[in-house]
């Protein structure tokens, strides 16, 4: 029995995936805790429970994500860029360009047939253009992140947002709320500001082939559709798994590759 795991500890959410013979048998997403170690434990426990296996059954586990160095139970750590590439290719076997918007980072990478990452680009500047940006904005609007994504479709006249700084953009949003601008137009403006920053990154790597998006923001339809308009290409959807766990899937797949060599038990 080749049971392996991947654990992705991000700044906003932590994810774990258990795989058996190339199939997901359990996964779990939690909101990250202050200590990555606790997040990792909780995410893995959830996934183990979902899969109905125990920690001892796992042959190999790779950790990734911003808190990867702090995970205690992993055999190895790998960058999330590599994991998302791997996970994306598994979810969409034709994917050649992957956009991953994380809590405080946005990365765009090109991948080959095996999901290996080629050229990639990541934003280094500011938290705007990241998942955290959307989270802050959704809080200001007093709605859920999922709802924020749906606002774009209903907007008539999206606002232009000062988009260089998350906190300043927040001030702008409050101002618009107060001056009576509709929540749809504000929401669409937020999604557009976000997409605008991501689009620059996407276009800068000159995307080829099918484009796939991973990370929690992939579920924000407003951002995805605005981004499609800005880059003039369709972003492929895949139903095989939740795009938010693509990094954990990639980690699990890499674990499986290891086990095929010489399987080792989890610490």
């Amino acid at each position: 029995m080749n049971i392996v795991a991947g654990c992705d500890v991000g700044s906003l959410t932590s994810k774990a995936v258990i795989m058996k013979n190339g199939k997901i048998i359990g996964s779990h997403i939690i909101k990250s805790k202050p200590r990555p170690k606790d997040s990792a434990d909780a995410a893995l426990d959830g996934a183990l429970a979902a899969a109905g296996v125990s920690k001892e059954d796992i042959k190999y586990c790779i950790g990734t994500g911003y808190g990867r160095e702090k995970i205690e139970f992993v055999n190895e750590v790998v960058s999330e860029i590599k994991c998302h590439g791997k996970g994306a290719r598994w979810m969409l076997p034709t994917a050649e360009t992957v956009i991953d918007i994380g809590g405080q980072d946005c990365k765009v990478m090109k991948i080959d047939k095996s999901g290996n990452v080629g050229r990639f680009s990541a934003n280094d500047k500011c938290a705007s253009g990241t998942g955290r940006f959307l989270e802050v904005m959704a809080n200001v609007l007093n709605i859920g992140i999922d709802e924020l994504g749906k606002l774009s479709a209903k907007a008539k006249e999206p606002i232009t947002l000062a988009s260089t700084c998350t906190v300043w953009a927040q001030a702008d949003v409050i101002k618009y709320i107060n001056s009576g601008v509709s929540i749809e137009d504000i929401g669409a403006g937020i999604n557009a500001a976000m997409s605008g920053r991501v689009a620059i990154l996407v276009n800068s790597v000159k995307p080829e082939g099918d484009i796939f998006m991973t990370g929690g923001v992939a579920k924000n339809i407003g951002v995805v559709e605005t981004l499609e308009k800005l880059i003039g290409r369709r972003i492929k959807r895949a139903r095989k798994a939740d795009p938010q766990i693509a990094g954990a899937i990639g980690a699990a797949l890499l674990s499986a590759e290891k086990v095929n060599g010489n399987g080792r038990k989890v610490k």
């Binding site: 700044s11 202050p34 200590r35 990555p36 170690k37 808190g67 500011c126 938290a127 700084c165 998350t166």
Partner: peptide, 15 residues
Amino acid sequence: QCVIFAETEVVSLVN
């Protein structure tokens, strides 16, 4: 310099 990134810095100090 960035509030959001400073937050990460704080979290890593906690870690």
